[in-house]
């Protein structure tokens, strides 16, 4: 039974909720607003929420001074490429863990996750040398591989939790119906788990897009994505705020917009299937 609440109470909670939400969102909002100000009004005291002299100047300047489209394209290729490759490797693994669990399945899953706990900095030099030696340094392929491996444990885990919700009888029915393992996965499992796979895809694209250690240390120019683009802007003092804000907005806007549109799917994915 749904309960009825007084309108008064609803107004109060609504006001409180919006207050808190705006507070959390404010830094992002402030960054976007600042990106449209002149450098002078960006540092004006007291701060101006809206300034009179709205300008697109900052964007124009960031655009002309750097090769934004190349960084953007690299980010797209690396984040989507690494996630798709990760899914291709993780789907069979998750199938195995969910439908043919053994005594060691849980340990295996936990081991996979624990590989993520190794501090990346600890293996920076070996990784750098390896990438140089293998010709992967500053290549998109190299970053696709690195980020795929970084996120693989998360992808496997998420898929595993989604697959576990699918009744095994359906896969057995497919087996009785003459489906090979390939057909079982392609025609039955994957379509049934599509919402889960979509959430996994989204979350990992975001994680890969926002990765800012390997993407910066293992690239120089050719394969550098937006995280490296923004790092190159991070020595600003004082008079540089508006342009910094514009560059920052440009770096996060694509994923922010994607995230807003897919928010429902994403929240489901964020819970890692562990919260029903």
């Amino acid at each position: 039974m749904a309960r009825t609440y007084s309108t008064r109470r609803k107004i109060l909670t609504t006001a409180a909720a919006w207050g808190v939400a705006l507070l959390i969102f404010f830094p992002v909002l402030w960054m976007i607003l600042t990106s449209f100000k002149t450098e002078a009004s960006a540092v004006a005291s007291p701060p101006q929420l809206f300034s009179a002299d709205w300008t697109f100047e900052n964007y124009a300047e960031v655009w002309s001074r750097s090769d934004y489209p190349r960084f953007f394209w690299n980010s797209v290729v690396i984040s989507i490429g690494s996630t798709l490759l990760g899914l291709a490797i993780a789907i069979p693994a998750a199938w195995s863990m969910a439908f043919v669990p053994g005594k060691r399945t849980k340990d295996l899953l936990m081991w996979m996750l624990s590989t993520k706990m190794m501090p990346a900095v600890g293996v920076l030099i070996p990784m750098y040398l390896l990438f140089q030696r293998l010709g992967l340094f500053d290549t998109k392929i190299g970053l696709v591989l690195a980020l795929m491996l970084m996120n693989l444990p998360i992808i496997v885990w998420m898929l595993y939790t989604y697959f576990k919700e699918i009744p095994g009888e359906i896969l057995e029915a497919a087996r009785m119906d003459g489906a090979s393992l390939w057909n079982e996965i392609v025609h039955v499992l994957t379509p049934m788990a599509l919402p889960g796979i979509a959430s996994t895809l989204l979350l990992n694209v975001i994680l890969a897009w926002n990765e800012a250690f390997w993407t910066i240390t293992l690239t120089t120019t050719k394969a550098a994505p937006l995280s490296a683009f923004i790092a190159s802007f991070s020595a600003p003092q004082g008079l540089f705020y508006a342009k910094l804000s514009a560059a920052s907005t440009m770096a996060i806007a694509p994923i922010l917009i994607l995230g807003w549109f897919s928010q429902k799917q994403l929240v489901r994915g964020l819970t890692f299937g562990a919260v029903k």
């Binding site: 969102f25 975001i206 897009w209 926002n210 937006l226 923004i230 991070s234 770096a251 994923i255 922010l256």
Partner: peptide, 12 residues
Amino acid sequence: LVISPFFVMPPV
């Protein structure tokens, strides 16, 4: 609004 910070990359 609440989810937004999650989409902001750490250097930004």
